[in-house]
Design a protein around this nucleic acid. Structure first.
Lengths: 188, 188
DNA sequence: ACCTGAACACCGTTCAAGT
DNA sequence: ACCTGAACACCGTTCAAGT
């Protein structure tokens, strides 16, 4: 209860966690002195990915909490960060429309990749930490051959590939593709 | 309390909601008799987008609930749907590796775009429906010029563009780009 | 077969007392 | 200035009674 001296309640506490996770982000990107907008976005993307990997259980908060205003998009949830991003793109010759488009595509990309990457890890961690809170009875054990997999030969065959974690590679490829797309849009 | 006759508890209830939202999806895609894998993925993507737009408040559940097994990725959370997708890609000449890559990229794309699109709508709806549960005191009104925006000229200038909802277009463009990328990977 | 009141555990929050 | 016990409201869940 002592926490109530520092935060106004549960919501405020969670908000503070999110702020804490993201603080210093822009500063670290700046410190690396990127020379192109591509490098800038790449650095920023990796900083955020690092956050998500360091705090896999908390990262969903960053993504799912409502930002202060509806036009700020997770995981770039604060004005300072967005200002910095838009300013950087503008400096590199983006007009307003392309800059905003790039911001939106960039945030969607980050949410899509990082949320799924992180949720995979959290599930496994949680499964180990809490020893079956309600048993695996609710969720049918679908890797048990007689509950459904035998009617799903493709899934069965590709199971190894599906559970393989190539997060790093996939992230890199997706990011590269995104940058290419933005590059094309910026040169008409 | 009468619900406890039908579901085993809160978790089970939420799971049932998710199942309900997604049911019939594969069937509707099938009914449209897609002739290429591109068309198949496009139909599937639009079906899921329709779900998210019809149920913006419930859609985050689809995305954030742990699927039955860690190698199933939201929003394609059940074996039948994934089997159908993998089978379709295989039929169209994908090897296992590319099929799985396509599945992963496809789900990441859907999560990224739809979660952000939907969260924008929910916030506005919620803001209207519940008349200020804790006042706007916690969240500093950042569109008020003297709380931060005056130090963020780019954000201020692009504000209209940022809050514009071009969900449909953005989704279409992103999907097109994704399909192109998969196409390239499939032809080496 | 289905619903419901009362009770319980649990969690977020408040407040009056403690140091 | 900071922490804490007791109390309260609220929610998920159970169970014994109701029809």
């Amino acid at each position: 209860m002592a926490l109530y001296r520092y935060v106004s309640g549960r919501e405020d506490l969670l908000e503070a966690v999110v702020v804490r996770l993201l603080e210093g982000l822009v500063g670290r990107v700046d410190a690396a002195r990127p020379t192109s907008w591509q490098q800038y976005l790449q650095l920023l993307a990796h900083e955020i990915r690092d956050v998500s990997l360091r705090h896999p259980a908390a990262f969903p908060l960053v993504v799912s909490r409502h930002p202060a205003t509806p036009w700020l998009r997770p995981p770039l949830r604060d004005i300072e960060t967005v200002e910095h991003l838009l300013a950087t793109l503008t400096d590199h010759g983006f007009d307003d429309g392309r800059a905003v488009d790039a911001y939106k595509a960039f945030t969607s990309f980050l949410v899509g990749y990082l949320l799924l990457e992180v949720s995979m890890r959290v599930e496994n961690v949680a499964a180990v930490e809490e020893p079956m809170n309600e048993g695996s009875a609710d969720i049918p054990e679908q890797d048990d051959p007689d509950t459904g997999l035998y009617t799903a030969p493709h899934v069965l065959r590709m199971r190894e590939l599906l559970s393989q974690d190539r997060g790093e590679e996939e992230f890199e490829i997706g990011l590269e593709m995104l940058l290419n797309r933005i590059e094309q849009s910026v040169s008409h």
